[in-house]
Simulated scan of single mutants.
Amino acid sequence: MLTLDQLSELKNLVVERHEDGVWIVRLNRPNKRNALDIATIDELVDLFSSAPRLGAAAIVLTGEGDHFCAGLDLVEHHQADRSPADFMHVCLRWHEAFNKMEYGGVPVIAALTGAVVGGGLELASAAHIRVADASTYFALPEGQRGLFTGGGATIRVADLVGKARMVDMMLTGRVYQGQEAVEIGLAQYRVEGSSFDKALDLARRAAENLPLTNFAICSAISHMQNMSPLDAAYAESVVAGVVNTQTDARARLEAFANKTAARIRPDS
Rank of each mutant, 00 (worst) to 15 (best):
L54P: 11
N34I: 00
I24F: 08
L4P: 03
K11Y: 12
V22Q: 05
V22P: 08
E9P: 09
I38F: 15
L61R: 04
P52Y: 07
Q79A: 09
T40E: 03
V14I: 10
I38Y: 09
H18M: 13
S50E: 02
E64V: 14
L10Y: 04
E19H: 05
E9M: 10
G55D: 06
H18N: 15
V60E: 00
G21L: 03
A39I: 11
G63S: 05
K32P: 09
A35C: 13
G63Q: 07
N12P: 02
N34C: 04
I38K: 06
A70D: 09
H78Y: 14
L44D: 10
N31V: 13
S50Y: 04
S49L: 14
I59E: 00
A56L: 01
F48C: 04
L72S: 01
N31F: 13
D73C: 11
L27S: 06
L4E: 10
R17F: 03
P30K: 03
G71T: 08
V22I: 05
S83W: 06
L4Q: 14
H67F: 10
L2H: 07
D20L: 04
E19N: 09
D81S: 09
K11F: 10
L13S: 04
L74T: 13
K32E: 15
A80K: 12
S49R: 14
T3I: 09
E76H: 05
A35F: 14
W23L: 05
V60A: 00
E19T: 13
H78A: 11
H18S: 14
A51N: 02
S83N: 01
A70F: 09
R33L: 13
D42C: 15
